[in-house]
């Protein structure tokens, strides 16, 4: 079950040479599955970063990015109802073959997670896949991170100090329960308490 320790070697990020990286098996599988899809339309809900745009845009037919983290942060700062952010995911049903949720669910309360999952289910084509990350009980790190994809599916966490979002730690069973409309495909423990999940739409 234990998997990857922090690895400061092989860092290829200009911005944060000390960034912590890990090999993302979930992302590798996600992309393997995705490359077999005929349309190859991918949605990344953020935090959007340059490296990921380059990585994914070179591998997909069309890359859709919609930074829900910034939208959520703006809503919270203004004191507006969080459910306003969902109008930004106004794509037609069954638009995508894959959705990268990263840790968005960890930043939402249960009602909004439900809304997010329903939306994702609607936006995915049958057979499409969702990748989600759950931070679990990460001591002393509640700040939001960009999951910056490097070479060979190494992922580096880059802090996003401009985002002030609550962290709601969820466990394995919580994730399985909240993603109930999907078929659980795989999960990986990347670091203690840090999990990646793949879910598939029937």
């Amino acid at each position: 079950m234990t998997a990857f320790t922090a690895d400061r070697k092989n860092t290829d990020l200009k911005h944060d040479p000390g960034a912590v990286g890990y090999s993302s098996n979930a992302l590798e599988l996600f992309m393997e599955h995705f490359q077999q899809r005929p349309e190859r339309k991918l949605l990344d809900v953020g935090p959007v970063c340059q490296e990921n745009i380059r990585f994914f845009a070179s591998r997909v037919k069309k890359l859709y990015v919609c930074d829900m983290f910034i939208r959520l942060d703006r809503c919270i700062r203004k004191g507006s109802p969080v459910d306003q952010i969902w109008e930004k995911l106004d794509y037609p049903p069954q638009s995508f073959d894959g959705i990268l949720l990263w840790e968005l669910a960890d930043r939402l309360d249960d009602a909004d997670v439900k809304r997010l999952v329903t939306l994702c289910h609607s936006l995915l084509r049958p057979g499409g896949m969702v990748m989600a990350v759950v931070l679990g009980d990460q001591p002393g790190s509640s700040g939001a991170n960009a999951f910056v994809v490097g070479q060979n599916f190494r992922v580096y966490l880059r802090p996003q100090p401009h985002l002030h979002l609550p962290l709601r730690s969820r466990q394995n069973r919580d994730v399985l329960s909240m993603m109930a409309p999907f078929i659980p495909a795989k999960s990986f423990i990347c670091r203690p308490g840090f999990m990646e999940f793949l879910f598939r739409r029937e």
Binding site: H15, G46, P47, V48, C49, I53, R54, A57, S58, K62, L63, Y64, V65, C66, D67, I70, R71, K88, A146, R158, Q160, H162
Partner: peptide, 11 residues
Amino acid sequence: DGAYLKAVIEM
């Protein structure tokens, strides 16, 4: 980092 994007990107 920090830019808001809702975009379709083709490179």
